[in-house]
């Protein structure tokens, strides 16, 4: 937006109808993109959520049945389980990513670029392939088993694949960069004068970290939570591949409603419920961070 204002100011006098048209196209194309690919499908989802279900279709109408069903007994427990799952995953990512991001942002000087690249390199490979790689690594007779056996730390087949442990290993691995990058940006922008002042005033290193650095990094923390928690509520690839498809999460449940049960209405109602919870979560984060405002320079 800023860029278009600048160009408009610079050449305002000679602006022709053509350039005005160009600007309109520039401004409208993202809008059209959003409308077609986000708003319209969302609209369908909303309409379907209140419609009557038929096998492999819907009958447009207005009913709360789907929501009642989505919030009844078993589905409600899966809904809560999913939120717990995403919260646990987010917390684990946060615990692992915080020292990592802090280290890169505050302790590394010369090779910082390299570390950032290392953090991003996994994105060059498909998410699926990387998750499948973990399936190979964690296999009962896989390389991790071999290594542990060699080090005399474990004996026999490795019993990690198809357990919650494997799922959370996959989750932390898959989502770590999404948590670490915003944290890195936040840590990096905290002026060193502030931490110096803190230690001058008698705070130890841990005290400074928890009472100065971490609170100042709030927008980065919020962004990291958002980027990991939100997609985790829809996660179903990792539990299916590494968790033996045991236990059920909303992502898989919604997919099954659409595909196996062919109940688009119930699937939509579940999706709308998730959106509502995530909306509330985002709202809370915005309030807590003053709109993701950056640290004062």
């Amino acid at each position: 937006m800023e860029a278009s204002t600048v160009s408009a100011g610079g050449r305002a006098r000679t602006a022709s109808a053509a350039s005005a048209f160009g600007r309109a196209v520039l401004a409208l194309s993202p809008l059209a993109w959003l409308t077609i690919l986000f708003v319209v499908p969302l609209g369908f989802t909303l309409v379907y959520a209140f419609a009557h279900a038929t096998y492999g279709g819907v009958q447009i109408g207005f009913t709360w049945t789907n929501f009642k069903q989505a919030l009844s007994g078993f589905y409600l427990s899966i809904f809560l389980r999913t939120l717990r799952f995403a919260a646990t995953g987010t917390l684990l990512c946060f615990v692992v990513a915080t020292p990592l991001a802090y280290f890169i942002a505050r302790k590394i000087k010369r090779w910082r670029g390299l570390f950032i690249v290392l953090l991003l390199i996994p994105f060059w490979t498909s998410f699926l392939i990387r998750t499948l790689a973990w399936e190979t690594l964690l296999a009962p007779n896989g390389p991790i088993r071999d290594a542990l056996n060699f080090l005399q730390l474990h004996h026999g087949l490795l019993n990690v694949l198809d357990t919650p442990t494997a799922v959370f290993i996959g989750i932390v691995y898959g989502y770590l960069p999404l948590m670490a990058l915003p944290l890195y940006v936040a840590f990096e922008r905290i002026p060193s004068e502030l931490t110096e002042a803190s230690s001058d005033l008698g705070s130890g290193r841990l005290g400074t970290f928890f009472r100065v650095t971490l609170p100042l990094a709030r927008p980065g923390i919020a962004a990291g939570w958002l980027l990991t928690f939100v997609p985790m509520t829809g996660e179903y690839v990792i539990p299916a591949l590494l968790g033996g498809d045991k236990g059920v999460l909303m992502g898989g449940l919604i997919a099954d409603q659409y595909l196996t049960a062919q109940n688009f209405a119930l699937g939509s109602a579940m999706a709308v419920l998730i959106l509502a919870v995530l909306g509330a979560f985002v709202f809370v984060l915005i309030r807590a961070t003053g709109g993701f405002k950056l640290v004062p320079q």
Partner: peptide, 20 residues
């Protein structure tokens, strides 16, 4: 049986959940 496919799926999800 299209009429009960939703319930079949529901029952299966419960079996999956019981395994966790």
């Amino acid at each position: 049986h299209p009429a009960i496919q939703g319930e079949v799926e529901n029952l299966y999800s419960q079996i999956q959940a019981a395994a966790a």
